[in-house]
Design a protein around this nucleic acid. Structure first.
Length: 485
RNA sequence: GCCGGGGUAGCUCAGUUGGUUAGAGCGUCUCACUCAUAAAGAGAAGGUUCGUGGGUUCGAUUCCCACCCCCGGUACCA
């Protein structure tokens, strides 16, 4: 019997700005889930992330900086390593949408959709502001006028584009949702997308004229066009697995129509692309749908969106530099609701750090290990955690991707350590009844091992530190230093 | 405008079949202890009773209606 395969992928951040804490949330959530499946469940995990590197904005940005677009994206992709280190990420694959195998896969995907009759040429009407000399989207216009040049009429520009026949998929999508009530998690987001699809859907354009915007994947059989960045970028979730060449690997991780296996995680702004458009593309290409689309919220700061002008932007690198990787991971995984918007301010962060990591986890480990050393209690432990009832509860939450609730359970156990010490007072008891005190301390040590085990997915570095301490208890140092605000 | 989510202690939030004195964590105050990172524990205060106004009901934070406020989306920005 083969090991169970597990696949999870983040969305690919678009590389026109430095990674911010919002993407950090997504990739840390994915990392915790991946580690859980890899290390605690022993599954064979494929954890994918990468960068989305085509499209107009990147093209413009590169030109702006006087660079070749490929060189610009190369630089950015290299920077991603900083994020990997800063957040201690365990992804197995890093895809760049400019990788040649991805480009080839995107073209094959296109051909399959075309063969299925879902791609056709149509006239695409764009709105064009002569003042800006730019095309505008409807949402950029106010009352049908450009907000920068309200005295000028918006012109309609027509060009030939390829369209994906999204409208063909309406019933198939609704059926997918009906068959899988947990297709999108949380369920409220499934309701949202279902309602959107029920309301009727329009075809969307999937190509751009190459002479206007050359930075994209060439459309097969038509040198005039490149793929619109959406289409190409979404294909990464399967090209990362070697599709279309490596059908074995693809099937093992992506799953089959009967047993889809792919977990995707995305922000709520990506609900439509991931749970509807991409699924429609998969259906068209004859591939299995995803298994779950996990939708997380946004990180806001002080009740407002982060923005440079408000000065409330949280830089993940700064936090890590000051408090350490696991402090940030802790905050993102437990202090932010898993599926809803969460607030992130330095004040709240510092408070959570002190209360739960310094005073909570760190101090509990210190006092127990110190007592164990003073009383000569063995700090090694080998156990089958799988049969621990509390671990079963933890597992249940993790299997439902309820990361915060799972973490809450761990911290409840940490709190119980202190409660037990206070009730039994082993530090006092050791003078009257050393045997009884040792027995209690031994139980506390075992409990730390179990907590440590559950912590592996969330705080991998801390988990290693705890193990090192338990192996060499005489060398104990604080897990989380006090940091003055 | 429309669609979705939300308005419960200072803060962050639980509260799914409507039922006695509405909960947790953090923060605050008091007390106690000393094994620990000047830390951990216990107790207490804190909600004009759960956005506002109606309604259904013996009884509603929980159901219905209207309204107010906040947030997101409103499709080619990836």
């Amino acid at each position: 019997m083969n090991k169970k395969r597990f696949y999870i992928t983040t969305t690919l951040p678009y590389v026109n700005a430095a990674p911010h804490v919002g993407f950090a949330l997504e990739i840390v959530q994915a990392d915790a889930i991946a580690r859980y499946h890899r290390e605690l469940l022993g599954e064979e995990v494929f954890f994918n992330t990468g960068t989305d590197e085509h499209g107009l904005k990147i093209y413009q940005k590169a030109i702006e900086e006087g660079k070749d677009p490929q060189a610009y994206t190369d630089e950015y992709a290299a920077k991603f390593d900083h994020l990997k280190q800063a957040l201690n990420l365990s992804y197995d694959n890093f895809i760049r949408t400019t990788d040649s195998y991805h480009v080839a896969a995107a073209q094959e995907f296109w051909k399959r959709c075309a063969a299925h009759g879902d791609i056709e040429k149509k006239i695409y009407k764009t709105k064009y502001c002569v003042g800006c000399e730019l095309e505008k989207t409807d949402s950029e216009l106010e009352d049908g006028r450009c907000s920068i040049h309200p005295n000028m009429d918006i012109q309609t520009v027509e060009e030939e584009n390829y369209f994906f026949k999204f409208s063909n998929s309406q019933s198939a999508l609704l059926e997918l949702y009906a068959r899988n009530p947990d297709f999108v998690i949380p369920p409220s987001r499934l309701g949202e997308i279902r309602k959107f699809i029920e309301g009727g859907i329009q075809d969307f354009s999937v190509s751009r004229l190459k002479r206007k915007m050359p930075w994209g994947v060439p459309v097969p059989g038509d040198p005039e066009h490149v793929m619109y960045v959406w289409f190409d970028a979404l294909v990464n979730y399967v090209s990362a697995l070697g599709w279309p060449e490596d059908t074995k690997k693809f099937e093992a991780f992506w799953g089959t129509k009967e047993l889809p296996n792919a977990i995707q995680i995305a922000g709520k702004d990506n609900l439509r692309q991931q749970s509807a458009m991409w699924q429609a593309m998969l259906i068209s290409a004859g591939l299995p749908p995803s298994r779950h689309i996990l939708i997380h919220g946004f990180i806001i700061s002080g009740g407002q969106k982060m923005s440079k002008s408000l000065g409330n932007v949280i830089d993940p690198f700064e936090i890590v530099e000051r408090y350490g990787t696991d402090a940030l991971r802790y905050y993102l995984l437990r202090e932010v609701p898993t599926f809803e918007d969460g607030d992130f301010t330095i004040e709240r962060f510092a408070e959570a750090y002190r209360a739960n990591l310094v005073n909570g986890l760190g101090n509990s480990v210190s006092r127990i290990v110190k007592m164990a050393v003073l009383s000569g209690v063995d700090t090694m432990y080998e156990a089958d955690f799988a049969h621990d009832p509390a671990f079963a509860a933890f597992k249940e939450y993790m299997d439902r991707f309820e990361l915060k609730k799972a973490a809450d359970g761990i911290w409840e156990r940490i709190g119980n350590l202190d409660k037990k010490i206070d009730e039994t007072k082993p530090f006092k008891l050791v003078r009257e009844n050393p045997g009884a005190a040792k027995k209690i301390l031994r139980e506390l040590i075992e409990e730390i091992w179990k907590i440590d085990y559950m912590l592996k997915s969330f705080l991998p570095e801390t988990s290693k530190k705890i193990e090192a301490i338990l192996k060499h208890p005489e060398t104990i140092v604080p897990l989380f230093p006090r940091i003055d605000a």
